[in-house]
Write a protein that binds this DNA or RNA. Sequence first.
DNA 1: TATTGTTATACTCTATAACTATA
DNA 2: TATAGTTATAGAGTATAACAATA
Lengths: 174, 174
Amino acid sequence: MSHSMPPIAPGPAHNVPDLESRAAPEDHQDLRLWLRMLTCCNLIESELRSRLRTEYETTLPRFDLMAQLLRVPGGMKMSELSRHMMVTNGNITGITDQLEKEGLVERVKVASDRRSSLIRLTTKGKRIFRKMAQSHEEWVRAMLGGLSEKSRNNLFEALGELKLLAQPQLSGRN
Amino acid sequence: MSHSMPPIAPGPAHNVPDLESRAAPEDHQDLRLWLRMLTCCNLIESELRSRLRTEYETTLPRFDLMAQLLRVPGGMKMSELSRHMMVTNGNITGITDQLEKEGLVERVKVASDRRSSLIRLTTKGKRIFRKMAQSHEEWVRAMLGGLSEKSRNNLFEALGELKLLAQPQLSGRN
DNA sequence: TATTGTTATACTCTATAACTATA
DNA sequence: TATAGTTATAGAGTATAACAATA
C-alpha cells in the first residue's frame, strides 16, 4: 500500500461505513470508543494478515510465535509461549508442529525437566523471520506513520493505561 | 466481570506477559504502539466473545449483524451488511441463515430489485437484541470506564485520526 | 456485462477435554 | 496431586470460486 499498491477503491477518506457507523447518538461514549478502536484494529490486522499470507505464505499467529522466539535465543517453553500469546497449550503445539515441519523452529529437549522442551528458531527460521519482521514493520509504519506526534503519544499513553485496566479483568485461560 | 466476577488470577496489574512484551528496545515506536493496541483489542474482544457465548449463546459477528440492523427498521441489503461488517457476501449469508432459523431476523423480498432482499430484525430479534446490547454496553463500560477523562478523549481523537489514515489503504473486499 | 445473493469448499484458529509422562 | 505437552474434536470465522437469477 503505502510503498506501491494503489488503493482500489479510493473513495472519500471519510464516512466509509464500518462497525462504528452503527452507533446511535444516544450510545454512551465508552461504546463508541470501543467500536472505533475495534474498527481500527480490524483494519490494520486484516491488512497485516493479508500481506503475510500473500507475501510470505504465513499467518499472524505463526508470525507472532516466531516473534516471541527471536528475542530469546535459548528458546522458550511451550507453556511460556502459551501465556504470552494468550492461547491454550494445544494451539501452541499445533502451530509449533507446522513451523517445525518447515524447519523454522525446533524442539530441544532439556535435561532438567523431561516433560518439557524448549522451542527455538532455527538458523533458517531466524533468517526468514528477520525478513518478514522488516516487512511487517514497514506495513505498520505505513499505516500508523501518518499520525501526528501528539496523537501517537496520546494513543500510546492511553492504551498503556487501558491495558492495565483490562488485564486484571481477565480470568486465567490455561 | 466488574459487576460480579472476581478475577481468578489477580496477580500484579503490571508486567503481565503479552504480545507487546516481545518488542525489543530498538523496535520503532509505531510497532510498539501497534502491539499495544492489538493487545488491548484482543483482551477486550475475547472477553466480549466469551460473555456473549456464555450468557447469550451467540457470537460477535451475529451480535454485530443484529446491531447493524437495529438502527435501520426497514432492513438492510446483504451487500450493505457485507460492506459495513467488512466480510464477504457468503459469510453474511451464513450468519443470516443462522439468525433466521432462530427467528431473530427475516428476509424480505423487495419488488424493485428481485435479486436482493432486505434483512431486518423480527420483533423477537429486537427484544432479544436490546437485552444483549445492554449487557454488552455494561461489559464495555466495565473495561473502559476506568480510563481517565483525558485518556478517553485522547484515545477517541487519536483513533479517529487513525481510522481515516487506515481506511483508504484498504483495498475493496467484495 | 455487472451485480446480488447462494452454495460448496478448504483452511486457520480456537477452546475443551481426555490423555501421557513426568514432577 | 499438579504440571508439561499431546491428541482429538468440534465449531467459529474467513476467503475463494463457481453458480443462478436478475439488472
